[in-house]
Amino acid sequence: MHGACEACPHAAFSENAPQGYTLEMERGHIHPVSSLIRETNRIFFDMGFALESGPLLESERYNFDMLNFPKDHPARDMQDTFFIKDEPGMVLRTHTSSVQSRYMESQIKRGDPPPYRIVSIGKAFRNEATDMGHEAEFFQIEALAVGEDVTLANLKGTLARFFRELYGGASVEVRFRPSFFPFTEPSVEVDMRLVGEHVPEKLRDKWMEMGGAGMVHPNVLKSAGVDADKYQGFAFGFGVDRLAMLKWSIDDIRLMHSADLRFINQF
């Protein structure tokens, strides 16, 4: 670290710059989103959640039908969907929620009833114009916990622990607001507030919108073959890019896919 650069806004580079024979090949950097996914997976793994994946090019069946989006229903308008040329019924998944129904269906087919705890972390797509806050391709984390007695209170507790660990041991408050998603009932929007001196000033004591969540709609359980009278569960889906933007005060989501080392090498 050199004093002369302390005050200049480019200090990040200088700080990251190795000393001595610096133009030797130094260690590279993983993408901040990868770092965040690594951390997120670890936090959820410790809570018993297995990481599951599914295809990005997905059928409407898993992306919509099994998630209780009726055909030709206005709820589908909430998702700006990319359809695929000459492949009717195929879409770029609009959320990682498609993994929910894939997973539950395969478990039931294998004869494994709940409890289930999974996370799915990966790319999702929305067909919309891009700006500092919106990207057509982005990362999402989906979590699903199904059991005989999984409650909305468990959702709040799980989120509180996740945010606390991700944002570094600060005191965290989680708040729900009513919302609507076809695949959850009740549905909520999740807000988070970080409290405490360790929290960067920009984030401290402010409510921030984190994403959607709720109790899995019985129709979603039923369509996957899960006994909805016996089991219930929660699910949530958050933008990973947004989690990363909050964590590191990143101001433009488009940096994520910029492949620009001026950005990536800061992490």
């Binding site: 018993g48 990481l51 705890r117 916990a145 909305l152 709040k156 507790g157 509180a160 708040r175």
Partner: peptide
């Protein structure tokens, strides 16, 4: 919804699979 308490899930019975 502020009357919904925050409760962590109980410990999970099985070890999660490795992806």
């Amino acid at each position: 919804y502020d009357s919904v308490p925050a409760m962590e899930l109980p410990k999970f019975g099985k070890e999660p699979d490795i992806n």
